[in-house]
Write a protein that binds this DNA or RNA. Structure first.
Lengths: 110, 110
DNA sequence: TTGACATCTCAGCGATTGGTGAGATGTTCT
DNA sequence: AGAACATCTCACCAATCGCTGAGATGTCAA
């Protein structure tokens, strides 16, 4: 559909309902940072500890930890200490939350 | 896969390659605002003029116009005056750019 | 136990961002 | 031509955001 397919003498429709994009905006804001997006991309291939991700992303560990805290609160990732070497905190994605993010964003870009 | 499926005595892999999330971050930043996300969602159903979208989103027209300018520069939307009533500037999505945004974001959330 | 390592938390700062107001351009109608 | 309308641009301000540094907690190894 191009613009010229519109009805002749268009009168702006001023009573359109506002789309609900709240969830999509929240998830997009989380993805809108190279470190957070990099973390999510890394975790797509399986769990990683903080120092692994910091090295891969060339960022400082406390910085990565800060971003992980935000994504943890948003429910996108989950942390658990490894049972053998508890010094490392391993992060993994919450697949349900990631699926929710995916569908919320696809709803906007549909 | 859960964390306990990891190899015993894990040694952090510090030589992982950094994923390229540049495009996804740019598109996510554009979606990370209720007005811009609302615009994209509205345009999914066909072209709209600025005043229509401003009314639907309950935002001021110059504010909507500002956001449209950013999305225009990013190539996500395109504007053209209606041939009959040239007072209205009709916006439509650039389907190729939207598809690029979709695949960049899905690559991160894969 | 001591030291090294991995992670977390948080205050502070510089940078970026979104909304606003005002003014300018272009279009339609009378 | 003049008035009303639709849109655009831009400087300004307040709010938000990301990075840093410092200090604290917890874990392992010597």
């Amino acid at each position: 559909m191009t613009v010229d397919d519109l009805p002749i003498l268009p009168t702006p429709r001023r009573n359109l309902t506002a789309p609900d994009v709240g969830a999509a905006v929240v998830y997009a804001a989380l993805l809108a940072d190279p470190i957070r997006a990099g973390i999510l991309r890394l975790l797509a291939d399986g769990p990683h500890c903080v120092c692994e991700m910091a090295a891969a992303l060339e960022a400082r560990e406390n910085n990565v930890s800060n971003h992980l805290a935000r994504m943890r609160e948003a429910g996108l990732v989950r942390a658990s200490r490894h049972t053998v070497n508890a010094r490392f905190q391993y992060y993994e994605r919450d697949h349900e939350a990631v699926a929710a993010a995916r569908s919320a964003l696809l709803e906007v870009l549909r």
